[in-house]
């Protein structure tokens, strides 16, 4: 009997305590904000969308190799000595590889930050931009390469010519001229 009254009292009492707490919160300062208008500061090292600075990228492919989800797709073309551009990288050194393709698929990216740490030239960096949603999956594939398709074609051609020449020179040096020329591999 006493237990019964005790539990009835506990019901009543604890409910009042709860109501008191919620009532004080009714007038407390609100913690949410009006998101697109106001924003919380994002720390500068936040790991959000990746950004590549193409003039810094030397095409070493370390980022593509270290990526746990293989979301980075890099293709390079060797810079031939006969290249008329004499390309220079952002830090002033001679460029050895043209980065013809540098795609990051942000649908796959897991924002682990491994690519940024292995990059020797700090060409790839995380930005604080996290609002890049897209209606299509293709829209999430970012093409970072600074080269136009004509440029790529031209560089490829240059490389092919150059390598054919090299091969011919080599073949001529080593033995009799071979009968069949390999096209591409």
């Amino acid at each position: 009997m006493i237990d019964y009254f005790k539990s009835v009292w506990a019901w009543f009492h604890t409910i009042l305590i709860g109501m008191k707490i919620t009532f004080t919160h009714l007038f407390s300062k609100k913690v949410t904000i009006q998101y697109p208008n106001e924003r919380y500061p994002i720390p500068h090292n936040a790991k959000n969308r990746l950004q590549l600075y193409p003039d810094l990228c030397n095409g070493c492919m370390q980022c593509a190799r270290v990526c746990p989800v293989q979301c980075i797709d890099v293709e390079t073309i060797r810079v031939v000595p006969t290249d008329p551009d004499k390309p220079v990288m952002g830090d002033g050194t001679q460029r050895k590889l043209w980065v013809s393709v540098y795609d990051i698929d942000f649908a796959k990216c897991c924002f682990c930050g491994l690519c940024t740490t292995v990059c020797p030239t700090e060409a790839i960096k995380h930005t604080t931009d996290f609002e890049y949603s897209s209606y299509t999956r293709e829209g999430l594939i970012y093409h970072f390469s600074a080269m136009s398709s004509e440029q790529v074609e031209q560089k490829k051609k240059l490389f092919e010519e150059w390598s054919a020449k090299e091969k011919a020179a080599k073949a001529g040096k080593v033995a009799e001229p071979s009968s069949v020329e390999k096209g591409e591999n």
Binding site: T22, H25, L26, F27, K29, K30, V31, T32
Partner: peptide, 13 residues
């Protein structure tokens, strides 16, 4: 609104 204020939210704005 009351639920929002109790929960320290702004509610619909």
């Amino acid at each position: 609104k009351i639920s929002a204020w109790i929960q320290e939210r702004l509610g619909p704005m």
